[in-house]
């Protein structure tokens, strides 16, 4: 089976600093892959390279497009990558703070709707229908994420856990086939993390979306991921099933070096 996303020899330099070195990674449809590693290992940089925020120094990422053809993501702008079916969340929540939760999700619908300037000014039937449809779809998504009662509240007034979920809902509104989650459980308590676990499982099972997950909460990683990729200093040091990775000496060393043992987390 061809992978949904194939990353080949991806390298990213910042001045003299090599943040990613010849990284290979494949993600298959509806698969959940976790990306773990110490802080500063280059995990978020990889996200930024995939989504077009950074332009990789070498190597490329290819996406199996909806029509089955393989498309290079090289040189695409973030919005073009999103249109192709990859969407992300941010490590430090980046919601549109003064807009309502519903409008945040409606922004996600932007690339799947068409109405232009003329439509907005004339407000013809098609535009109105599309607008209503976008609002309904977004509301449905909010309901799915347990956020419906916050629909009309400004995003920055939502409780922390709800903001994290809203970010995922907003990303899902773009109809991604691959969802990139950057530390979705950061700052959540155990209860919230559990709820998040259920949401992600449901996304995978009901929507069939593939997920690439950066996370430090090992319990969440072990419960969700089918494969785990471990990076350190920009290089992949291990990849495999959770059980394999847990036993891998290189991984243990990388983590113990940071005074953190995998066993303590898991």
């Amino acid at each position: 089976m061809t992978p949904l996303l194939a990353i080949r020899q991806l390298t990213m330099d910042f001045g003299g600093l090599r943040a990613l070195e010849a990284l290979d990674l494949s993600i298959h449809p509806a698969q959940t892959v976790a990306l773990i590693g110490p802080n500063g290992a280059g995990k978020t940089t990889l996200f930024n390279c995939i989504t077009g925020i950074y332009r990789p120094t070498a190597g490329e990422a290819r996406l199996q497009a909806a029509d089955g053809r393989s498309t290079s993501l090289q040189g695409l702008k973030p919005n073009q990558v999103t249109a192709l079916g990859i969407c992300r969340t941010f490590q430090n929540i980046r919601l549109f703070g003064h807009m309502s939760a519903l409008e945040n999700v409606m922004i996600g619908r932007h690339c799947r709707t068409r109405a232009g300037i003329a439509g907005a000014i004339l407000r013809n039937r098609r535009t109105r229908d599309e607008e209503r449809q976008a609002a309904d779809d977004s509301y449905r998504l909010l309901t799915k994420f347990g956020l419906a009662r916050h629909a009309n509240d400004p995003a920055n007034s939502l409780p922390y856990g709800a903001q994290r979920r809203l970010e995922i809902a907003r990303a899902m509104a773009t109809e991604p086939r691959l969802l990139l989650l950057d530390e979705p459980a950061a700052g959540m308590n155990a209860q919230e993390t559990q709820a998040l676990d259920r949401i992600i499982v449901r996304l995978r099972e009901e929507e069939g979306v593939a997920i690439l997950l950066i996370e430090h909460d090992m319990r969440l990683v072990m419960s969700l991921a089918q494969r785990i990729c471990v990076v350190d200093y920009g290089r992949k040091i291990a990849e495999g099933t959770p059980a394999e990775v847990r036993r891998n000496p290189a991984v243990i060393k990388a983590y113990l070096g940071e005074d953190e043992s995998m066993e303590a987390h898991a």
């Binding site: 910042f14 001045g15 941010f90």
Partner: peptide, 8 residues
């Protein structure tokens, strides 16, 4: 000046 990268 040095090139500035926005933190994302």
């Amino acid at each position: 000046g040095r090139k500035q990268m926005e933190k994302v």
